[in-house]
Design a protein around this nucleic acid. Structure first.
Length: 286
DNA sequence: AGTTGCACCTGGCTGC
DNA sequence: TGCAGCCAGGTGCAAC
């Protein structure tokens, strides 16, 4: 499910409910998701006050008033929803709660529930001083909505890469937060082929090409529009309040194999790159 | 060192 | 209606 715009949408929903509240009770319903939960996970969280909820790449990071930071990743199918703790307790066997793996009951009376059918998500507790140097975070690239991201940054990051533009854009060590959908969308907006060599964004003298600038602007634009729309709702992904994001209606290329390109009338193609589907228009993406 | 392919899971959809 | 096969928003790791 979640790329940067979806994670940011979740962050905003959780921030409003969690920041300033204490974790009055935490329930962990299985020993692992993608990885085992930390030792004594619920116990270490109980009683902690949430001071801030941040996003880095596709990670959610809750700053606690103790010595640790709670790191959460949604994987492919993770989602959060917010209910009132006084409401019906999800009963065993209720279809909707089958994959509810963690619940946080807050001092405000709200209950935050983490649901993840595929269990590719995970949660981790990291001591604050070790946070920046932690393996999860010490090799993460620049934020595409940050001030330092532009055509020059793209050209510099990709200068010596031998992979395709598509694969390079998906590499979280270069740019943090892009995923399969928004890479396809940004490349289409920029009129660049996903098969083009990543290094071709720099001119021979190493300066950023006009293509690099176009691509950086397209990435910013598509991410900003998607965040404003509350992300994309594929399958049953929802925001924390249960509402659907609606950016999926704005996809111009993703999932449109066989349809006509809205910009040039060419046929949208689907190919496989690095094991993942790529959608692009052979007419206007060069 | 950088790049690619596979593995990890469940569920939804398509086509027989 | 049932079922096999394929596909899915991510990423860590082994193998080249």
């Amino acid at each position: 499910m979640p790329e940067l715009p979806e994670v940011e949408t979740v962050r905003r929903g959780l921030e409003a409910a969690m920041v300033g509240a204490r974790l009055a009770a935490v329930e962990q319903r299985r020993p692992d998701l993608r990885f085992p939960f930390p030792e004594r996970f619920a116990e270490r969280l109980t009683g902690q006050r949430v001071e801030a909820l941040r996003r880095r790449a596709k990670y959610l990071i809750a700053d606690l008033d103790g010595a640790e930071v709670l790191v959460m990743h949604l994987g492919m199918s993770g989602s959060f929803r917010i209910e009132q703790a006084r409401g019906p307790i999800p009963g065993a066997g209720a279809k909707n709660s089958l994959h509810d793996h963690v619940t946080f009951d807050l001092s405000t009376g709200a209950r935050i529930i983490y649901n993840d059918p595929r269990r590719f998500g995970f949660m981790q507790l990291i001591r604050r001083p070790e946070f920046a140097a932690h393996p999860l975070f010490n090799n993460i690239g620049i934020e595409p909505l940050g001030y330092e991201f532009d055509g020059a940054a793209l050209a510099r990051l990709f200068a010596r890469k031998t992979t395709s533009l598509k694969a390079a854009l998906l590499d979280q060590a270069s740019i943090a937060g892009l995923g399969n959908i928004y890479v396809c969308e940004a490349l289409h907006r920029a009129g660049l082929s996903p098969r083009r060599a990543a290094a071709s964004l720099a001119c021979n003298d190493g300066t950023p090409s006009a293509r690099a600038t176009r691509l950086a602007r397209a990435i910013r634009a598509v991410l900003n529009e998607a965040v404003a729309a509350g992300g994309s709702s594929l399958r049953d992904h929802r925001k924390t309040d249960g509402a659907l994001g609606y950016f999926q209606h704005s996809f111009r290329i993703y999932g449109r194999a066989g349809q006509l390109c809205a910009r040039c009338g060419g046929v949208v193609r689907r190919i496989t790159q690095a094991g993942r589907a790529t959608f692009y228009c052979g007419g206007c993406q060069r």
